[in-house]
Design a protein around this nucleic acid. Sequence first.
DNA 1: TAAAAATACTCCATAGGTATTTTAT
DNA 2: ATAAAATACCTATGGAGTATTTTTA
Lengths: 298, 298
Amino acid sequence: MTNITLKQLRYFESLARHGHFGRAADVCAISQPALSVQIRELEGHLGQTLFERGPRQVRLTAFGEDFASRARDILRAVDELGDLARAARGGLVGRLRLGVIPTIAPYLLPALVARLAASHPALDLHVRETVTPRLIEELGQGRLDAAIVALPLADPGFAERALFRENLVLVRPLAQADDPVPSREALRDMRLLLLEEGHCFRDQALSFCNLTGSQPHAGLDGSSLSTLVQLVGAGIGVTLIPEMAVPVETRSAPVCVGRFAAPQPARTVGLIWRASNPLAPRFEELAEAVQQAAAPVL
Amino acid sequence: MTNITLKQLRYFESLARHGHFGRAADVCAISQPALSVQIRELEGHLGQTLFERGPRQVRLTAFGEDFASRARDILRAVDELGDLARAARGGLVGRLRLGVIPTIAPYLLPALVARLAASHPALDLHVRETVTPRLIEELGQGRLDAAIVALPLADPGFAERALFRENLVLVRPLAQADDPVPSREALRDMRLLLLEEGHCFRDQALSFCNLTGSQPHAGLDGSSLSTLVQLVGAGIGVTLIPEMAVPVETRSAPVCVGRFAAPQPARTVGLIWRASNPLAPRFEELAEAVQQAAAPVL
DNA sequence: TAAAAATACTCCATAGGTATTTTAT
DNA sequence: ATAAAATACCTATGGAGTATTTTTA
C-alpha cells in the first residue's frame, strides 16, 4: 500500500475540473489509461470513491468535493514552495501571471510590457484581463500571482499596494465642447452611458453621481470604454472614463473631454496578491515598473 | 527537471528535524545515500540550498527555515486527507493519537482504555501524557489528533467539546479530619502544596485561593499529585486535588479529604482538536466514551 | 452502437540499495 | 584519524505508453 503522491493530487484536480478522463489526461500530458490507473490507486488508498463514473460524465462524490477543496489548497501551497525559492534567488524573473481589469489593461499594458521587457528580460509575463471578482477568484486559487485593480479591496486574504491615483473625466459630443462642465448634480439628469454590470468602474462612476446601484437609463450599457466613447461620438449621451484612457479613446470619435472642478472624481489603482504569496517581496519591482509606465499618461 | 514530490518533503522534514543524514534516513526507513540524493535533487530543483552541511552537524539555511515551515503545513494537510477518508468511512477506527494532561491521565485512562478496547476493537489508541502547552504544540503540528485538557482554551485554531465538570477537594493530614473545612481566605494562610510550574492545575488551585501567579511557599512544588498527597501525609502541609484523583491518591497516605462549601472550586475538562481535523465528527464517540469512563469516579 | 473508462501488457525511468570515496575537523 | 556526507553503480519497482475490452445510455 503506497502513499498519496502529489502527482495523484494533480491528476485528481484535473479530473475534478474537467469531469472527463480523456480531456483531463490531455491537460496532464499523459494517456487516459495512465490517469485512470492513478485515480483508482488514489481511491484504493483512501478506501473511498472520489468520482461517480457515468457513461457521459464523471462527477465528484460528496467525499470527493471535500477532498478536492483540501487537495487544491495543498497544490497551491506546493506551488508556492517553488515561488519561495524563486523569490529567494532574487530579482523579478520567471513566470509571473498578472491580472488587470479591463478599464486599465489597454492603456497601461503596452507601456508596461515594453518597459518590463527592457528592464527585466528574464521575466515571463502572462497577462489576464477580466473584472475584479474573477481576478480575485483566480488569485485565490493560485492561478494568478498578482493583479492590478481599483483599491480598496479590504479583503484580509490579500495584500494591497497602491500604485497611483487617477482622475475620471467627462466625455461629451464635440458639439458641446464650449458648454461648461456640468456639476455632479447636473450629470444625474444627462444620459450617462455606463459599462455593464461587473465592472468596478461602473460603480465608481455611479457613486460619483450619488446614484445607487440601479442603472439610470436601461439598455445603454457598453462592454468597453471604447464602445461608450463611440456612442458618445454618435450623440447618444455622455460618459465618464479614466484619465489614462483619454489619449487612446478620444482620438477616433468626435468627442471632447471635460475635467470636473474639485472634488474631482478619482480612483486609486493598486497591485494586489495573495497574502501568503512568497513572491511578495519581488512585487515591489513590479509596482515601480507599473508606476513608471503609467506616469506619462496621468 | 522533475517536480517536487511529497517524498522529498517528508525526507526534508526528517532531515530538518534530526539535523543528521544517517539518523533522518533511518527514521524514513531508507539508506543515507538515498536521502542525500533526494535532498540534493530537491535543492537542485529549487535552485537554493536548504542545509548547511558541517562535518558534525547539518543545519537549515535561512531559506530552509522558511521552506520547512511551509513544508510542514503541507505534510500535515496531506495527512489530513487520509484522516478525511477515514472519517468518511465512519466509526472510530484506526490510529488515534490522544494527549492527556497529567492531572487527568492516571485516573481516567485505565477505565477509558478498557472501555474503548471493548466498544471499539478496531481503534488503535496512542496516548501521550504531558502539560497543556506541549499538547497544544503537538496538536498544531499534527503529531496528536486530539487531547483531553482543562477548558476553556479559547484558541481559535482549536475546537473544544466539554466533557465533564469536576470539583477540587482539600487534602489534609488525617489528624485534621475533624477540623472544619477552611474557607478560601483561610486556605491562603495554610501551607498549600502545589504542582510545579507548567501544570494548568497549579493555576486553577492558585486562582481559587485568589493568589496571583507567584508561588506562596517557595521550594514546595511537586511534579505529581501523588507526590503532593504523600507530602500532606507526612504533615508538610495541605493540597488541592481533583475529585477524580481521590480514590487513587488518598488510599496510600494518612490523609483525609474535605469538600468546600459553595462556591466549590471546580474545573471543566474537555476534548480539543485542530479545527481543521477531518476526524472531528468521529470525536463525538470518543467524547461519549470518556464521559462514561469518568462518571464512576465523579 | 458509440463514447468513454477500465484492463492487459510491455517498457523504461528512477528511487533505493550496497560499496566506496571524499571531506572537514 | 574519524565520523559523516557524497558519489558510483546496480537493481527493481511502478508509472506511463499502446492495444484492447468492457460498460451503459
